[in-house]
Design a protein around this nucleic acid. Sequence first.
DNA 1: GTTTGTGAAAGATTTCACAGCG
DNA 2: CGCTGTGAAATCTTTCACAAAC
Lengths: 223, 223
Amino acid sequence: MKRVPGTRPSHEPVSELTTARLSVYLRSLDALEAAGVNTISSRDLAEQFQLNAAQIRKDLAYFGEFGVRGVGYYVKDLRRHLREILGLNRQIKVIIMGAGNLGLALADYPGFRHDGFDIVALFDTARDKIGQYSKGGVLIRPARDLPRVVEREHVEIALIAVPAAAAQTVLELVIESGIKAVLNFSPGTLRAPRGSKVKNVDLTLSLESLSFFLARGGDEHTE
Amino acid sequence: MKRVPGTRPSHEPVSELTTARLSVYLRSLDALEAAGVNTISSRDLAEQFQLNAAQIRKDLAYFGEFGVRGVGYYVKDLRRHLREILGLNRQIKVIIMGAGNLGLALADYPGFRHDGFDIVALFDTARDKIGQYSKGGVLIRPARDLPRVVEREHVEIALIAVPAAAAQTVLELVIESGIKAVLNFSPGTLRAPRGSKVKNVDLTLSLESLSFFLARGGDEHTE
DNA sequence: GTTTGTGAAAGATTTCACAGCG
DNA sequence: CGCTGTGAAATCTTTCACAAAC
């Protein structure tokens, strides 16, 4: 299938594995651009994260023809395209549900701001927390302000960092308020309401997977 | 291939996807046992996390024949087996590199202790942090104590929560000290030294994947 | 010459479907 | 009868290999 450069065959479904890699490529391109590198080949990119060069070319080809044969990819161009594809060419407003240790740490996480994500507010139900600020200056608001803030500020993403028992209820509140995309840090699976996307960062599960590795004999069979 | 119940065909390689699901199953079994449920079928389990029943049976069958035909799986039994398979039938000592916001939050994260993971110490290089404690009472130690603590306390897992620029160096220190399994929270790919296992929790990447979902048209094509 | 974009092959994972056991 | 354990089929993902472009 032939395509005009920069055009994407809109809405062919793209696998999550592919999109996760796009983020990885983008990070590398940031560094390359900062270092003043002009072009990069799929082979050189692949080397960096021990990946197959054809895979990188395929991943990119889902979205257009960004490369130049015999040359590779122009770093600046490709970076711009990836940012556009990932929807990072604008500010995205984010709220955090739960102002516990984790919620507060996420509110001040420098990586988010750096990437164009704007943490608008924390929400909690504990009386004594409401009205306080995170170290980095994010206000903690009462849960009842949620719909108003989401609407007024055009919030698009919510992080859920509340205790497991409250997570499903909080998710539903968040979705009702009009948010479509959620990153959940509480353990256990949530039922994602239709039309919404819920991604999980399961800390316990990650640790258990390391425990499994150790239990299986540790180093014996590692690449 | 026939197997004695509870015997596992040691060291056939098992996919990460499978082992991640084992953790998920285990969590559900914890709840079922607490609720006094005696047996559970693969179908009922599958329903809970919209998964195919055959997949659950296959996942379990890698490790032995735990089920009873016509009945299902005995909750208590299966839970015990899964804990054993995942290596959770003992305390695992964990350290955290980096006593910033994130490191401190992880040190006090209740889910870890609850699951048998014991956070032994935080490590940092900042003078003013050393000697302090996290809210939950974990001591912050200077990086130079690392080898001693790891050896004396038999630490098996390190979490890395330092700025991206320091992450690779810290990883190498950790591995030198004798640790084989690492959970990395700093963005970007680390080169895992041979014989070690490095798992990444990439917060920025997770958010970007939500951004992609929103950029693609949000709800239109969700299940 | 080099490197992309892409069909076709290989490999991995999931689902189907059913024999066999309790 | 109901449910597990498992080969075989279907699907999804990665890798190969090469024609076409610069």
